[in-house]
Amino acid sequence: MNALLATVRRDILLALRRKSEVLTAVFFFVIVTSLFPLGIGPEPVLLKKIAPGILWVAALLATLLGLPRLFAADHVDGTLEQMALSPSSLGLLVAGKILAHWLLCGLPLVLLAPVLGLQFDLDASALGILTLALLLGTPLLSLIGAIGAALTLGVRGGGVLLALLVLPLYIPALIFGAGAVEAHIAGLGAGGHLSLLAAMLALAVFFAPWATTAALRIALE
């Protein structure tokens, strides 16, 4: 467990020395969500209707942006080899890296989403549901994404390939995440969607680090 926390601390420290990389994903999120009203038109009713979908798709793409770097730097400079040979279990270290990725790339999106939601005229309770859905959904995106990042590590055209592998797997998170907000706005209640998101998150917490570790060992061979 200490090794997990050490990995989180290390990755955050490294990110703080290179702030631009984290900020890029956040700005991307802001810019993409702001582009939609410009493309679609400023009609409040329509914007309110499509807001959950837009914010979720933008969050999905912003998470994707940081994924290729998740293991690449450690792979190139040999740190990943050291991790694989460490007395600490590689699965724990990988879990730490995924957690750090979420703290750096996912959490800022969760915190920004209510502000961006205001652009789309969402009311306070809908913003709350949106934030909650993203809070449950973005760790899921990091966990699934880590598998793709490990599989495409050091592979030709890895970044584009990563998107191709990961995006179809993101669909359930997108459906339930955006669906939670839509259901709430429609007065149907978001409880079902949110519990399904939580269930998927629980499943991913157990299996994704394991699959990622297996994929990393293959990449190191």
Partner: peptide
């Protein structure tokens, strides 16, 4: 998913 599988193997 099929395309992803084939693309990964090809890469």
């Amino acid at each position: 998913l099929y395309l992803g599988f084939m693309a990964l193997q090809a890469a």
